[in-house]
């Protein structure tokens, strides 16, 4: 079978060698480390492009002052309101309110710390609305 071209297939696993099942010349199955099937890279790339698109929309909204920086952190870390609420153990409506800049500026330090701990940023970053990289980009 002819496969789509090779671009972006390697960065799916960051050079990590994964194994998959393939039939050898005797018709027997074995685990091989040799290859990442190309379409995997294509669809993975597509998923990340969609995330990147959402992040840039959110970034624009934050700079325009329409949402708080919490919205950026939520989007950048692929979360939705329900997930943020679960992680910070708050009701969803509170998280919804915190997405409004006016409300977010008045949030208590304790609540802010919950967000800061989750996204591994400092309280000052959140207060000043600094938009730092998501968790998976830091390491």
């Amino acid at each position: 079978m002819e496969l789509p071209d090779r671009s972006s297939a390697e960065d799916v696993t960051d050079g990590l060698k994964i194994v998959s099942y393939a039939v050898n010349s005797n018709g027997e199955y074995e685990l091989t480390q040799d290859f990442v099937w190309q379409p995997v890279g294509v669809v993975n790339h597509q998923a990340w492009e969609e995330i990147a698109k959402k992040i840039s929309i959110s970034r624009n909204k934050v700079t325009a002052g329409r949402v708080s920086c919490l919205h950026y952190y939520m989007t950048a870390n692929q979360m939705d309101i329900g997930l943020v609420a679960q992680y910070t153990r708050q009701p969803r409506w509170k998280v919804c309110l915190h997405l409004i800049p006016f409300v977010f500026a008045r949030v208590s330090a304790d609540t802010l710390r919950k967000y800061a701990d989750m996204y591994r940023v400092s309280l000052a970053d959140l207060r000043n609305g600094r938009l730092l990289a998501p968790i998976y980009n830091n390491e």
Partner: peptide, 25 residues
């Protein structure tokens, strides 16, 4: 996007390829 999602579930890491069919074979 929906289509890409189906393919990711089928082929991405942890499936052994072909949506686990090769592993079962």
């Amino acid at each position: 996007l929906h289509l890409g999602h189906v393919v990711r579930m089928q082929e991405e890491i942890g499936t052994g390829g072909g949506g686990f069919r090769f592993m079962y074979a």
